[in-house]
Design a binder for these strands. Sequence first.
DNA 1: GATGAATGAGGATTCATTCAT
DNA 2: TATGAATGAATCCTCATTCAT
Lengths: 220, 220, 220, 220
Amino acid sequence: MAVTESKGARPEGAIKPRRRQARGERRVQQLLDAAANVFRQSGYTGASTNAIAREAGVSPGTLYQFFPNKEAIAVELGERLIHQMRQAHGLVFTEENASLPLGEMLDAVLDPMIEFNCANPAFLALINSTDAPGRVIEEHHALHVTLQARVEELIAVYRPDLPDDRLTQTATMAFHLFKAGLDLILAHEGAEREAYVTESKAALYGYLAPTLGTEGAPAP
Amino acid sequence: MAVTESKGARPEGAIKPRRRQARGERRVQQLLDAAANVFRQSGYTGASTNAIAREAGVSPGTLYQFFPNKEAIAVELGERLIHQMRQAHGLVFTEENASLPLGEMLDAVLDPMIEFNCANPAFLALINSTDAPGRVIEEHHALHVTLQARVEELIAVYRPDLPDDRLTQTATMAFHLFKAGLDLILAHEGAEREAYVTESKAALYGYLAPTLGTEGAPAP
Amino acid sequence: MAVTESKGARPEGAIKPRRRQARGERRVQQLLDAAANVFRQSGYTGASTNAIAREAGVSPGTLYQFFPNKEAIAVELGERLIHQMRQAHGLVFTEENASLPLGEMLDAVLDPMIEFNCANPAFLALINSTDAPGRVIEEHHALHVTLQARVEELIAVYRPDLPDDRLTQTATMAFHLFKAGLDLILAHEGAEREAYVTESKAALYGYLAPTLGTEGAPAP
Amino acid sequence: MAVTESKGARPEGAIKPRRRQARGERRVQQLLDAAANVFRQSGYTGASTNAIAREAGVSPGTLYQFFPNKEAIAVELGERLIHQMRQAHGLVFTEENASLPLGEMLDAVLDPMIEFNCANPAFLALINSTDAPGRVIEEHHALHVTLQARVEELIAVYRPDLPDDRLTQTATMAFHLFKAGLDLILAHEGAEREAYVTESKAALYGYLAPTLGTEGAPAP
DNA sequence: GATGAATGAGGATTCATTCAT
DNA sequence: TATGAATGAATCCTCATTCAT
């Protein structure tokens, strides 16, 4: 969904649907790709809309035909990335994984996440960017909440007895540790990247094992 | 003789010996404090020198009497914080700590670090800021290198047999995990902050124990 | 077929072929004209880009759409004037002139120069401005060199026997005398201007006659 | 005379004489010397009072204890230079010179002028500077008028029959030619400087000879 | 839709000048 | 007097955004 249409059903019939034609959709993607690059290089505040337009090979006027302002670009970019991310992890936090031994579960959960982030390095950049616009940060927060909820569910399968606050703290901590590892993974390439993948998993394993145990979850 | 002399030999025992320098030094500190706040809120790029001056309660011109440009403010701020940080950790990576059991060593090393960062939240902000000026980032990098070198030394005491690349990766990972925990610690207060302190240590313990063992370093 | 088509093949014979470029080019000329005025009144250093924009009737941002900075304005202005000047004098330092008697040669050479400078008073202002940016001064120097080279050639036709240093000094001196006269010419109008034209020629005649003789150059 | 006292007689007894003490006079001279350097290098507009103070080795506050503003510095500097210049030429435009043959008269008049300007290169710089403050330019104009008056007198001795406007134009032209030569003289050194001295005299000789004749003035 | 020109407020920085000591 | 800190308007320039074509 790209900026202006947000409801889909068009209730009062008068709101111009602003049909996104194929050409327009291509432009939007083009602009978002450019924005991803520029945001990654310069941060949100440092990125200029003119630079984004230039990177996309269009004029500034064109950019504003698809986005009402700079913030909306970051928001849309964040939304799309988060949407993809949700799809990626949606396939991952499954019941089945929940019963695997800890090490296998981590492989099953983390590998697609890591893969996604390697393919979309702008994602982590936006998510970590403290100078991102409010709505991006809200979504970022929402993503955290969502992901942590999933992590909490998983942990709860292993440790149904854990009190709520401990559960939340453990999930939060685990998620932050993962992001820290991801930073290092994205900052390296080749064999070193692989090494940091291993270390990241080791860190999460080491952190979670005392709480979750190393075996699969107990049979329900 | 009355007390109304205004130029001569200041009666009360040597309170303000040299004013020129003193006033200036006070201003510098004032400006750096203001900058710390503004950088934390808006990031380096988003912070305006006018905003920093305003926060410090002075005019823009005054700021430029003490700093040649915006970058210099961040550099000086970084230098001062790093200097303090080095002093803090200098007391910490000692020979004695190196022979403690892992858990105690982590307490001895992390507690002062955490305390320093809680007292100087601008430090982590600057260090993490990707849009900081080159020289800040260089120093930031130098700090990383220094700290990691210390961590590597410690680890080497426990595991003199570890190959160099594994050593580096382990220290790097440990340091990043620590920063991730610190983020959470700083983001919370009171009991929750304490909880995340505990979790951070647990994470590092869990990550390092398999490599370092849980006992003190072997006798040399 | 009616005339109301708005995109296609412009009906009236090729009046405004490409508008974009045209409007911009007009603006550039407008800005350069404004700059010429402001530079003349305030000198390069004293001229503010805002003042130039105001004089041109546009906003400061518009100026920067066409020139990257203040220096570039002076450079471009200088280049254009020098280009025109070269065209003007190109028609003037011809073989034929070189064989005229001194007085007639001076008429043939100086009249177009004077005419050009009266039409473009900013030229002398820029050329004489010592606080002009480096590149303007470089070009200014290049122009001096070029013009003096022409003058040297002319003199060499009259006096092939003159040693190189004397030749250069004579040409340099002649050129400076001409500029001094030009100053007075531009500072006056009407009959007085004409009088100073006469005096300027008299000065150059008086200076050059002893060296070149008053007759045409010797037959080759 | 340095800025504030301008009448000398102090009519109403209440105007503080602001006695210029020896120390103060030294400071003023120090500041004017510094200003001469800075103006020569950067022009009037480009020169900053802070730069002048720095060049003089004092603080900005001190500068403003002796001069009310930047313009006053240039004015005072101009006044002093012009005063010295007047003294120099005062010795020069004498009755005796007026009866010498043209060449000798030029030597007698120009040599001290040239010497003065070589010793005080800031003079020509200030005098030629178009961005100088109004009062400097007024004085500059007054100097022109004065000098031209002297030149006119001299010429009138040779040619009492010349109509007024021709007289003025001739004197003006002669003076401008002299300044043009002076530019070249100051721009060179050593033997080249000497050469341009010779050329400058040759130019004035060549310009004036047809009008004044080459002999001394007719006996009165 | 696309373009590039136009805008003007805002940002970093300078500088003439004043003030407190 | 001398100092250096303080001021704030002005400077050069950028950038998000709008407009005319």
